[in-house]
Design a protein around this nucleic acid. Structure first.
Lengths: 257, 257
DNA sequence: CCAAAAGTGTTACAAGTACACCCATGT
DNA sequence: ACATGGGTGTACTTGTAACACTTTTGG
C-alpha cells in the first residue's frame, strides 16, 4: 500500500492514503533502572510532546497500522501491543496544533485540510524492551525520547488522558495476564521482575509472596547461572517459558466463576 | 445535529451527516424465560438479519452515537452499554449487501457511494430489560426481533463474529462486575438471578455458594415480600441496591495484587 | 565481621468448594 | 404425605497475607 513520501505530501494529500478522520495513538511503555518509561515524540516546530501516532492506510487493519507505526518509530517487530480504548470526543483535536505545525512547515493548506477535521483515535498501549529501542532522533525533525512516567511534560491534544488510561489498563491487565516478557531482557532476576510489578502498580509487594505467586503461574524457568558482580548475595536468573507464557496470555491467570 | 430524513437521503447523502467509513454495531442482550436473547434487525429487502447498527454524526461522541442508535431501536434510555472492540478488517463489509439493498430500494447510487467503501466498526454490547423493549417492527421496512442465543440465523457481514465476541466479553465481565440490574425486573428472586448467571456462563452453579458469593458483594437488598403463586416454597424477592451496585460497577469486585 | 540483599519456610486467616439438613407449598 | 424447590449451615480445601530465619557477598 502506498504511503506519503514527504511531510508536505502527508499534509496535502493524506486523504489519498489514509482512512479519513481516524487515527492511531500508542502509549509505549519501557522499563529501565527501576522506573517505568514512556516513549514520546516531538515534531521539531511544536513545543509539546505527544504520543507516537499515525493513520490507518486505506486497506489496512487498525491493528496492523498500530504495528506499522510502532515499527517505524522503535524499529521493533513482534511487540506486545494491546488495544486500549476509542478516544472520540468531538473536540479532542480542536487546538491550534495542526495550523501551527502546517504554518511552520511553510505548507499551503486550506481551512478544509483533512488534518483539521475532527478525528476519532484508536488508543493502543505497547510494552517494549527499553534496551532494544533506538529512540531514533531521525535527523532534526522528529525527536523521540523516553520519559520517566512521573515526569511527563504537557502533551498534545488528549494524549495525557490516553496515557493515564493506558497506565490504569496496564495495572488491571497485570492481574489477569502475565507481563514482563516484553519489558525485560531475556534473563532477569526475581527482584528485578518484582521491581517491575511494583513500578507498574506503584505499590510495594511482599518479596516472598510475590515469588510464590509468580512461580505458581508456571511461566518462569530458573536458569543455572546467577547474576554476578552484584553486591550481596547473588540472585538466580530466570527466563520466561514462552510456551506457557503465551498460553497464559491467551487464557488468563485465574479468577472467575 | 441534523440527521437524514429518509432512507434515500441516508444512502445518497450520508456523508453530509456522518463520519465517513466508521460505524457502530451493538449486540443487545436480553433475558427471558431462562434464556439469553439477542435483538436482531432485518431490513425488509434483505434476506439476512444483522446487529443493530448505525453511524456516528459528524460532531457526535461514539458512545453517544451508540446510545442514540439503541434508543432509536429499543426506545430505552439509560441502558447499560459497554464498548467491546474495534472491528476493522478491510474486507469485512465487502459483500453484495449494500448493492442489493440499494437496488431493491430503487435508489440510484454510484459505484463510489459512501456505503460501498470500507468501514471500520465500533462494536458495543448492551444489556436491556427484555420486558421494557418494544421490538418495534416499525411499519414494514425494519423488523426487530429477539432471538434465542442458541438459535441465531446467518448474519450480515462479520456480525456473527461481533456477537460471539460480545458473549465472551460478557462472560468475562461477569467475573469482575455486577450484572443483572439491566437484565432483570426491579425485583427478582435468588434462583432467577442465578439462572441468569448460569445462562450467560453456560454452566451450572452451586445454589448455596452462589447465594453466599453474590450476597457478599453487598449489592442486593432482600425485600419483605416473597414471590407468590409459585409451586413449592416461596422464595424471597431481592432488588439491587443501586448505590452499591454502581459503586461496584466502577470499582470492580475484587481480585488483584 | 557486618550490613544488605536473596533464598526458603511457617503460621494464621480469608475465600472458595463441596456437601446435608430442614422448611414451605401445591398436588 | 410427598415431591419439589428454597432457605440456611458446616467441614474441607485452597489461596492470600504476614512474618522470621538462614545464606551469601562486597566492603
Amino acid at each position: 500500500m502506498k504511503q506519503p513520501r514527504t511531510k508536505k505530501d502527508l499534509i496535502l494529500k493524506g486523504e489519498d492514503y489514509f482512512l479519513p478522520q481516524l487515527s492511531v495513538d500508542c502509549v509505549i511503555f519501557g522499563f529501565h533502572e527501576g522506573v517505568l518509561k514512556v516513549l514520546l515524540i516531538r515534531l521539531a516546530p511544536l513545543p509539546q510532546w505527544g504520543l507516537v501516532g499515525g493513520f490507518i492506510l486505506k486497506e489496512e487493519n487498525p491493528d496492523a497500522a498500530a504495528h506499522r507505526i510502532l515499527k517505524e518509530r522503535t524499529g521493533l517487530d513482534e511487540i506486545f501491543l494491546q488495544f486500549l480504548q476509542v478516544f472520540g470526543n468531538p473536540d479532542r483535536t480542536k487546538t491550534d496544533t495542526w495550523p501551527v505545525l502546517i504554518g511552520k512547515l511553510g505548507v499551503q493548506a486550506g481551512t478544509n485540510n483533512w488534518l483539521l477535521k475532527r478525528f476519532v483515535s484508536l488508543g493502543y498501549y505497547a510494552l517494549v524492551d527499553f534496551h532494544e529501542v533506538t529512540p531514533g532522533t531521525d535527523g532534526s525533525f522528529e525527536s523521540c525520547v523516553w520519559f520517566d512516567i512521573h515526569e511527563i511534560p504537557a502533551l498534545l491534544f488528549d494524549h495525557r488522558e490516553i496515557l493515564d488510561q493506558a497506565l490504569e489498563t496496564l495495572q488491571l491487565h497485570l492481574n489477569y495476564h502475565p507481563v514482563g516478557y516484553n519489558l525485560l531482557p531475556v534473563s532477569f532476576t526475581m527482584p528485578e521482575l518484582q521491581r517491575l510489578y511494583e513500578t507498574i502498580l506503584d505499590k510495594k509487594l511482599d518479596r516472598r509472596n510475590f515469588q510464590r505467586k509468580i512461580l505458581s503461574f508456571g511461566i518462569l524457568r530458573r536458569l543455572k547461572e546467577k547474576r554476578k558482580g552484584v553486591a550481596h548475595k547473588a540472585p538466580y536468573l530466570y527466563s520466561f517459558d514462552l510456551r506457557k507464557y503465551n498460553k497464559a496470555l491467551k487464557e488468563g491467570l485465574g479468577g472467575g466463576w
